[in-house]
Amino acid sequence: MEITLRVNGDERTLPVDPRTSLLDLLRERLGLTGSKKGCDHGQCGACTVLLEGRRVNACLLLAVACDGLAVTTVEGLAGDGALHPLQEAFIAHDAFQCGYCTPGQLCSAAGMLAERGPSAVTEDLAAEPGLTAGEIRERMSGNLCRCGAYQGIVAAIAEVAR
């Protein structure tokens, strides 16, 4: 089947087998290897990209189901030669060690910062919650870091959220 995606601002039309995940299409057909394959089951978050501006697990999406939609990968976060503020903050706070989960952490954090409403740890559903460390940890729980760089990740996201 032929599909068209807008990937990091560029329109890409290509034939795909319906079995192809969005992640495999990005990595193996479009050469965008920033998005990582960790578990391939939606449990680790290494494949997180933004679909129509919302964070999703690219490993659980069929590429054919994304026809006509806009995808932003970690390669598209930075603009005009300048790093995204989250990328700057991750460097400043040592928010990674091996770096394998980092593209997913960055895309997830970018999506998360645009989200509104309470989380599972918000006490008062009626108030717009501030992004405390506890809120950040809950909202980022779909992204695992086997190196355990969570302290730096939380600090980096908190800095950008301020």
Partner: peptide, 22 residues
């Protein structure tokens, strides 16, 4: 959020931010 806090809390306690978006 206003009428069904039980439902809101149940939905928010499920899965991850990425999966809830999908």
């Amino acid at each position: 959020l206003a009428r069904y806090p039980m439902l809101a809390r149940a939905v928010l306690s499920g899965a991850s931010g990425q999966i809830r978006n999908m």
